[in-house]
């Protein structure tokens, strides 16, 4: 059995860190017969865009409204002209969907004819801040409140249905590790939200 989460052995240079984790391209550095190093950056860039587009189609099976990319789970995509290396961040270490997400990513990349490795890493902790604006909007439409901002005075997000603030925590634990149950006083019903 391969490990679910790998410790990251690669170290990012500051330049790479600034460039942004899911925006990396590595060139082929294959030495030709004459000893010259070739580097097909355009092809690597193009492959990276294709990989990201495929990852936009990979959903969290427990929240099918949003893709893993919209959830901010894509940490890094390194590509050469012919190969991709995808690193994903688990939302929660013990999330039972990780295996399914990794398998779905591999399957879809393979279907797209892309040779790729896909693995989970903990190079940085996933936090709800990583959810994209599109992801936040899709979550809300799905009936899951996006998380409150870090340092917010209350852990309770606004109700995804009516927008009312000042709800209550009904249960810090919900149907999946990343969700909690809150209660809207205006709607007088519970709603789900991302754990802050």
């Amino acid at each position: 059995m391969e490990p679910m989460i790998r410790a990251d052995q690669t170290t990012m240079t500051p330049d790479e860190a600034v460039a942004g984790p899911d925006r990396l391209t590595k060139c082929d550095a294959a030495a030709g017969a004459d000893g010259a190093v070739t580097c097909d950056r355009a092809a690597a860039d193009e492959l990276r865009e294709r990989v990201l587009a495929v990852l936009d189609e990979v959903k969290d099976p427990e929240i099918p409204a949003v893709s893993v990319r919209e959830l901010g789970m894509v940490y890094r995509v390194e590509t050469t002209a012919h190969h991709a290396h995808v690193q994903l961040l688990p939302t929660f270490v013990g999330c039972p969907a990780l295996d399914l997400i990794r398998a779905a990513a591999r399957r879809r990349l393979a279907e797209a004819g892309i040779r790729a490795e896909v693995e989970f890493v903990l190079s940085e902790p996933w936090t709800p801040d990583r959810i994209t604006p599109e992801g936040i909007e899709k979550l809300r439409q799905f009936g899951i409140a996006p998380p409150v901002r870090p340092g917010a005075p209350s852990l309770v997000p606004p109700c995804p249905y009516c927008g009312a603030e000042g709800g209550e925590i009904e249960n810090l634990f919900g149907p999946t590790p990343c969700r909690a149950i809150f209660y809207c006083r205006r709607c007088r019903q519970p709603f789900e939200g991302f754990k802050p």
Binding site: V93, G94, P96, F173, P175, P177
Partner: peptide, 14 residues
């Protein structure tokens, strides 16, 4: 029931 199941899942995942 929900809370302890979820916590159990976290602990075993760790």
């Amino acid at each position: 029931d929900v809370a302890f199941s979820s916590i159990a899942q976290d602990e075993i995942g760790h």
